[in-house]
Simulated assay, not measured.
Amino acid sequence: MGLTHIRTPKNFDLDERIERYADAIERNAPAYAGRWAEACWQLDTDAACGTGFTRVHLDLGCGKGTFIAQCARRDPDTLFIGMDVEPICIAYAAQRIVEEGLRNAVVVPLGAQALPRIFGTGELAAITLNFPTPHPKRHHAAKRLVNVDHLLLYRPLLAASGTVTLRTDSLPLWEYAKGQFDAAGYDTQWVSADVRHEHPGFPETEYEQRLTERGAAVYGICATPGQEPDETRIEAGRAAEQSLMCYLPDDLSSLDYVPLGMEAAVENFRNRERKGKARIPGSRS
């Protein structure tokens, strides 16, 4: 959720916290592939109980669980699954779920590459990507949750009308993602440069609140799988410019907020412009 690493707070016993809130942490997620909606609290691999849930919603990169907790309170008929690779995030999200007594939320300590082992075909009604780490450098592009290969990974797991929704404070990531969604054969439901006002139904995360207080806009894309893309279309997405530096606006003075991880690059570009030099050595200004 925007950070590549979260430092352990002082006097924070991670192992103790994980153990205390273990009821909300599912470590055997592949056991539920294809039948998450029929599972119930506590999740049981041997038998389902009750009537199950009507939908399964994945929050990929769930952070500290603010988003799924608010969603779970609002929509008790949907099972909300938060996934994150950061143990501290898992601990905080599990604590929130347990202490709030949410029976329709659980967290999974795995990343995107595990998705095909965890979910069955057409099982997910929605995937949200809330403020994913932009990974602005070209050689880190494979880590982006909105690159064409990740978007192709999600396709078979989504229901026919299932959606992938990106929300980000990074204008360059948003601009990059538009082409990647197209390359992966998605049909956009909406594209917004001001999600907070145009689509106000999203619960606000702690991270988002801190960003907006600093003047950040929230950009977004909501899309659903369309016709399967051919290899030419996919390769075009892979061949697209992968450095997010190239998706910055031409007029850097219009950039009131600098996205996470791009501060040094933007300052360097501004210095070059003040000296009348091209933004990138060897390029045209």
Rank of each mutant, 00 (worst) to 15 (best):
G215M: 01
A184Y: 09
Q242C: 11
G215A: 05
G215P: 04
E198Q: 11
F202P: 02
R214L: 15
G215F: 03
L244F: 07
D230G: 10
T232K: 14
A193W: 10
S192M: 09
M245H: 14
V195K: 06
I234N: 05
G185M: 05
Q180M: 11
R233I: 07
E241T: 10
Q227E: 14
R238M: 01
G237M: 11
E213A: 15
A239W: 03
P225C: 08
V218C: 07
Y219T: 09
S192T: 12
R233A: 15
Q209S: 10
G179L: 02
Y219L: 02
E206M: 06
V218D: 06
P203Q: 03
G237A: 06
G237R: 12
G220D: 04
H197G: 10
P225A: 00
G185F: 03
K178A: 09
E241Q: 13
Q227F: 08
R238N: 00
I221G: 07
D187A: 12
P225L: 04
A239D: 14
W190Q: 05
Q227H: 11
T232F: 10
T232P: 04
Y186E: 03
A223Y: 10
S192D: 10
R238S: 05
Q242N: 06
G220V: 09
G201A: 14
G185H: 01
A239K: 11
Y207C: 02
P200R: 06
